[in-house]
């Protein structure tokens, strides 16, 4: 019973990571490395909370959280796609902006609580049939709507990337924009659309934290999850299905310290607080040690595309 409860909680803790990772996969597949994930998550978290509190509508909260993330991404897209600015520094600037924005806008939200009716819309829903599978049913199919949305998004993204012609075009944009351009794929449009969609997903990831996971407003609510998501993109080799696994694994790491309290296993909570960050480093090092062509990043990642230069 302990394990089921733990694995179920790991999925919940992994859900914000999943959204952010999927968003960044989409962005990087378009050839742009957006290090502003943390910032976009924070923007989504604070706007989602603000909208949820003032309208009491979960739908509006989620829509506006996604919009906030997309607006952050729009700044990044304009700088890096249209103005060809340095992607690393632009992404960092977006993170700094998002952090400032969230603490600025969140100042009046500290201590506020959502209504019970609002929270009720994020309570767990058991999926008939699937939810009755022993062991797995309780873990995967007795969750809240956000978690299900995470599964669906990952699967849709997987199909989109690997089974549709638009997805093929997108991958071409990230791998070899000159060739895609020659095949009359509209580079700028593809980049903009996918960077914005990616930002929207990051915003949703942030909103899960402020609306469901925590669910009150606290300063710096993301606590580095945006950066872990950037690492998870590498870990999952830009594959949405593997991102599911990675996100839930890290969700488990996030909560393991808390869960082990009271089981008699005495390890300092501070050691466990370090775990997600340490494991991220270890995994990144291991992934980079074994170079594999299938795990390589999109070839043109981080490079601005300038038609006259090809």
């Amino acid at each position: 019973m302990m394990t089921v409860a733990f694995l179920k909680a790991a999925i919940i803790a992994g859900t914000p990571l999943l959204f952010a990772t999927l968003g960044e996969i989409l962005t990087e597949k378009a050839g742009n490395l957006n290090l502003g994930v943390e910032g976009m998550m924070l923007m989504g978290a604070v706007i989602g909370f603000q909208m949820g509190y003032s309208t009491n509508s979960p739908i509006l909260a989620m829509v506006f959280a996604a919009l906030a993330g997309a607006i952050g991404a729009l700044i990044f897209a304009f700088l890096t796609v249209s103005l060809r600015a340095n992607q690393v520094v632009s992404g960092l600037a977006l993170t700094i902006f998002g952090t400032g924005f969230a603490s600025f806008a969140g100042q009046s939200l500290v201590g506020l609580k959502m209504t019970d009716a609002f929270n009720a819309s994020f309570k767990t829903i058991k999926i008939p049939g699937l939810g009755d599978i022993p062991f797995l049913g309780e873990i995967f199919f007795n969750q809240d709507i956000f978690v299900y949305l995470g599964y669906i998004t990952a699967i849709i993204l997987g199909i989109y990337l690997y089974k549709t012609s638009k997805g093929l075009n997108l991958r071409a944009v990230g791998e070899n924009p000159a060739a895609a351009d020659a095949a009359s794929v509209r580079i700028t449009r593809y980049k903009y659309i996918h960077i914005l969609l990616g930002g929207a997903l990051c915003g949703l990831g942030g909103a899960y934290l402020s609306l469901v996971y925590v669910p009150v407003w606290q300063e710096n609510i993301t606590a580095g999850r945006g950066w872990i998501a950037v690492a998870l993109v590498i870990f999952s080799a830009w594959n949405p299905y593997k991102a599911l696994f990675g996100a839930y694994l890290f969700g488990g790491l996030d909560i393991i310290g808390f869960r082990l309290q009271g089981t008699g296993i005495v390890i300092s909570q501070y050691v466990f607080d370090m775990m997600p960050y340490l494991v991220t480093i270890v995994i990144l090092v291991i992934v980079s040690m074994k170079k594999d062509i299938r795990n390589a990043p999109p070839k043109a990642l981080g490079e601005p595309y300038f038609r006259e230069e090809r």
Binding site: G224, Y277, T280, V285
Partner: peptide
């Protein structure tokens, strides 16, 4: 060739903790 952006950032958190 490990991505230094993420490693340096993760180490910020390790130091803080």
């Amino acid at each position: 060739g490990t991505n230094e952006t993420i490693v340096t950032l993760m180490m910020n958190y390790v130091a803080l903790k």
